[in-house]
């Protein structure tokens, strides 16, 4: 099983609320982002305006390179597939960042540990949605849970 985040391209207006909600709710320090909103455009293509949007939280890879790269036992996977950092075990060595093809894990220099998106597992456990999904201005983000 696992989670996937969907961005509804018709509704998304590149307003960056997803990024800011994530930063505020998770107390993410300056210059770091746990989730990144990718935006291409708006650009004029003929008479149409093209805009592509995608919100990229951690993909919670089924075969997660960060997990095997972690030299301590800080990087862990839950039963529901979410990969998270147990910060008491993290040394901030950045091995996970090097291993991740998407540069998801970020080094928090204030705390000396790595940070990464865990889809707000605290909120999921309380029956709520991740901060980016709840706060999304247009209701463009959704979290799907797949059983496999």
């Amino acid at each position: 099983m696992g989670y996937t985040m969907q961005t509804n391209a018709l509704l998304c207006i590149s307003c960056k609320a997803c990024e800011v909600h994530c930063k505020v709710k998770n107390s993410v320090p300056k210059a770091l982002k746990l989730g990144v909103h990718l935006q291409l455009g708006p650009t004029l293509q003929g008479e149409k305006v093209s805009l592509q949007n995608l919100y990229m939280p951690c993909l919670q890879c089924k075969e997660a390179p960060c997990l095997s790269a972690c030299p301590t036992t800080a990087m862990r996977r839950r039963q529901d597939g979410i990969v998270f950092i147990e910060k008491t075990q993290c040394t901030g060595c950045k091995a996970c960042l090097v291993a991740c093809p998407w540069n998801v894990p970020q080094f928090d220099s204030d705390a000396g540990v790595m940070r990464k998106c865990d889809l707000c597992r605290d909120r999921l456990d309380a029956g709520k949605l991740p901060a980016c999904v709840t706060g999304c201005t247009m209701g463009a983000l959704s979290l799907d849970k797949a059983d496999d």
């Binding site: 609320a17 706060g135 201005t137």
Partner: peptide
């Protein structure tokens, strides 16, 4: 639940 970046 929705609120824009400024609100957040």
């Amino acid at each position: 639940g929705a609120l824009c970046a400024k609100g957040a």
